[in-house]
């Protein structure tokens, strides 16, 4: 899946996160989190896994986390990526 335009998903409310994606030649991930010390590695792992599932090879992904659960991180990264890809058709098998 290719990120072809800027897109965002999520919010800055507690237990949520804001994900911004934009086109880029390489895959770049920036994570800001109130709980980065405790959960930074875990958040990064979930973001990487989610992007891998969607076959995102390149793109800028900026995360502002407000203490979201893994399932929320997955969903918001998926939503931002799909919006950024301009794709209407979902392959649900890739989203588990």
């Amino acid at each position: 899946m290719k990120i072809v335009k800027e897109a965002i998903a999520g919010t800055l409310e507690s237990s949520d996160l804001l994900v911004k994606v934009a086109p880029s030649d390489t895959r770049e991930i920036v994570i800001k989190s109130e709980v980065f010390k405790q959960f930074g590695k875990q958040i990064a792992r979930v973001v990487e896994e989610t992007l891998d599932q969607l076959s995102v090879k390149a793109g800028s992904v900026v995360i502002e986390d407000k203490g979201a659960l893994d399932c929320v991180i997955r969903a918001r990264v998926q939503a931002a990526t799909l919006r950024g890809s301009g794709s209407e058709d979902l392959d649900w098998r890739r989203l588990s």
Binding site: C71, V72, A75, Q78, A79, R83
Partner: peptide, 14 residues
């Protein structure tokens, strides 16, 4: 709707 759908899809599996 698109984002909420994914959020629910993920939450259901928690």
């Amino acid at each position: 709707k698109d984002s909420a759908r994914l959020l629910v899809f993920q939450a259901l599996q928690h």
